[in-house]
Design a protein around this nucleic acid. Structure first.
Lengths: 136, 136
DNA sequence: ATAATTGCAAATGCTTTGCTTGTGA
DNA sequence: TCACAAGCAAAGCATTTGCAATTAT
């Protein structure tokens, strides 16, 4: 069965190679935010011949097609996740590296307002919170 | 007259070499957010013997001392600015690259609330708006 | 058939580092 | 004096790219 991402590739007319199908599948199944190395490891468990260059190229292709999102969190290499319908931002646990997604409409609205007030149309934004777990 | 940054270096006991003094001076006088290359160019106008390695090392030293702030805006190399008393965030003009600073207390508060609600203490954050100028 | 994609290794761009010489306190 | 800093070039790291061979449509 074609993965979620594979279907999007078809919809966008991307040529579907075995490598792309597999990367699409692995990304679709990933619940976290893997970097390219990690993605490469995961696909290599299934097909050990896929090169890291292909993973880089594919992930970039998917990103440009709006199928996956790239994140450059502080101090780390780029991480990827499947694009979701609903926008969200991230909180990064500075101790464990764990990434928690959150949605906050108020902040979204305020961002737009700030941009407007400065004479700009908000095209994109980046909001990342870095925190450490409260001990109870 | 010692620059603003130079004074902070003294306060923190950093050894003051000619190179550091000059980089401190150039950073103090910069109203924008130069990257290391640009900084290197600027100091080289005054002392052409300063190496880029020294600029990298100094800027890192200043950052670790909390004297300057480093920003990795999307798609660009790292940029630096003198630390200010009041925290601010940035709006980046996606057409010109111009950087506008802004302060919004409401967003700050909401960020803290979001972190708390997720069980975290907010240690750091990153908020960047990317926009294009409204034509009137 | 043929234009696009892959794998590989080499190249890139930014940043860091090892080592020797120079220098601030 | 002498631990630390500078300059240089080499190394590092993530990412990109040229090219010949392979493959999807």
């Amino acid at each position: 069965m074609p993965s979620d991402i594979e279907n999007k590739c078809i919809k966008r007319g991307l040529r579907l190679t075995d490598q792309r199908k597999l990367i699409a599948q692995v990304m679709s199944e990933s619940e976290d935010h893997p970097d390219v190395d990690e993605l490469h490891n995961r696909v290599n468990k299934i097909d050990s011949k896929i090169s890291i260059a292909t993973v880089y190229r594919t992930v970039k292709l998917f990103e440009e097609a709006g199928i996956v999102a790239k994140h450059d969190f502080k101090g780390n290499k780029a991480r990827y996740e499947q694009t979701t319908e609903e926008h969200h931002d991230h909180l990064i646990d500075i101790n464990t590296g764990e990434i928690i997604e959150f949605v906050n409409e108020d902040i979204e609205k305020l961002q737009k307002q700030v941009a407007e007030k400065l004479g700009y149309k908000l095209v994109d934004h980046r909001l990342e919170l870095y925190g450490s777990k409260n001990k109870k």
